[in-house]
Design a binder for these strands. Structure first.
Length: 395
DNA sequence: AGGCTTAAGACATCCCGTGA
DNA sequence: TCACGGGATGTCTTAAGCCT
């Protein structure tokens, strides 16, 4: 059961001694890359047909074609390619069209993951969890989880008047949407790392733990600063470390320097190559942290958009592969969780309405007082006592 | 002088470990 | 269980330097 060693890496490389789970994942990633997992394009398609329970034979001609011939095509091309194959099996017309789309979808999922259904289920689960946290009640938009984050009545007033011609309900809708979008941003940031980490050839670096989160410890904290690790797939490759961001603007000067420092340490410690990837973006112009990263780690490769997908997925259609996962996952999660922003806004407005009628004040005035008023000992550091913490010396 | 780029600040949120 | 701090993820704005 104990995993052996990574191929294509020296026995003395410390990566051979990272904790057992991570090492097993790295070894598995060396084997599951698409060119190793299938013997030919026909073999690959056979898996796709089998997954969809279609008794269709892959065309003879694909038997001596490389896997990539079938696996790395854009969605539209794939859909076209499947039509004649389906017709040869007696499936025609509208039925064939539907099957072709499903097959193309499945082809991308099989290309991307060794276990597409497990990944999909994981993503759906995470998305559902996050939908649960979308704002539903008045309380959810009045205060964030941090007690200091309260609804800003001035921004709400501006929204109501400047954006919606005085329509309070629409302004509440926008406030709910804003919160939900922030949550979605956070979700996608982490999801990208997880989903790409689950792709063939990749390993999701475990979140740093322990006392010093920046210190490399093969057992506790093997890859601080890396989101995704790619073990070498041949003798001429090195282990590759990726720091993955959604967009180029997410990290800034100081962050860039810190991330660059971490990447440099990884490169030196494991004799690897390091990448700083932003998934969304079509140019390095305006990149906020490239300079910071490169000045502390000049060998880092800074990539944006398709270029980063190409390295992270080892495929020319990497960006599409990711979209395919999300399309499936979002629609399934939405079906399961069901969240409708208009309904939430209407419910919240009626809460506010009841309250303001009871108090005899306008919506905004009531919100204003809720957002700025409480006991003065809660609001003045000279008298404030943090609830349960040891009392701080007031100097 | 004006426009563009880069760096950095302010802000909002989530997650997680810690300690009372 | 709760609040806090610090790590993420983002957004928008501003200041300063560089180039034309």
């Amino acid at each position: 059961m104990a995993p052996h060693r990574l191929r294509f890496v020296s026995e003395r490389n410390p990566v051979q001694r990272v904790n057992e789970n991570v090492r097993a994942a790295l070894i598995a990633a060396q084997d599951n890359i698409v060119d190793h997992a299938f013997s030919s394009a026909a073999d690959f398609y056979a898996k796709v047909f089998d997954d969809l329970k279609l008794s269709i034979a892959a065309p003879e001609g694909l038997r001596d074609k490389p896997v990539r011939y079938a696996s790395d095509r854009p969605f539209g091309e794939l859909t076209q390619d499947f039509m004649p194959i389906l017709e040869a099996s007696g499936i025609t017309g509208q039925s064939a069209r539907i099957h072709a789309v499903n097959l193309a979808q499945r082809t991308h999922l099989v290309r991307a993951f060794e276990q597409p259904d497990a990944v999909l289920a994981g993503v759906v689960g995470k998305v559902c969890d996050v939908i649960e946290t979308f704002p539903r009640t008045a309380g959810d938009i009045e205060r964030g989880r941090n007690p200091g984050d309260v609804l800003d009545p001035y921004i709400l007033a501006a929204t109501q008047v400047l954006l919606y011609g005085g329509d309070f309900k629409k302004a509440i809708g926008a406030t709910v949407a804003h919160k939900a979008l922030m949550i979605i941003e956070g979700l996608l940031g982490h999801l990208h790392e997880d989903v790409i980490g689950a792709m063939r050839g990749n390993v999701r670096a475990p979140e740093p733990r322990g006392f010093n989160q920046e210190f490399i410890d093969p057992e506790e904290n093997p890859f601080p600063g890396a989101d995704v690790v790619q073990p070498p797939t041949g003798v001429d490759e090195k282990i590759r470390f990726h720091q993955v961001k959604s967009k180029t603007g997410s990290a800034k000067g100081g962050d860039g320097k810190r991330l660059g420092d971490q990447l440099r340490k990884l490169r030196q410690y494991y004799d690897g190559e390091v990448y700083y990837d932003a998934l969304i973006g079509n140019t390095l112009r305006g990149h906020r942290s490239m300079r910071g990263v490169l000045s502390s780690e000049p060998t880092a490769v800074v990539l944006v958009g398709e270029a980063s997908f190409r390295e992270l997925t080892r495929s020319p259609i990497g960006a599409e592969l990711l979209l395919r996962v999300y399309q499936s996952a979002f629609s399934e999660a939405s079906r399961q969780a069901g969240y409708h922003i208009d309904a939430m806004a209407a419910g919240i407005v009626s809460t506010f309405k009841e309250r303001s009628e009871a108090a005899g004040e306008g919506f905004l005035d009531l919100l204003l007082s809720d957002s700025v008023r409480s006991n003065s000992d809660q609001q003045d550091s000279r008298t404030y006592r943090p609830p349960s913490r040891r009392k701080r010396p007031a100097n």
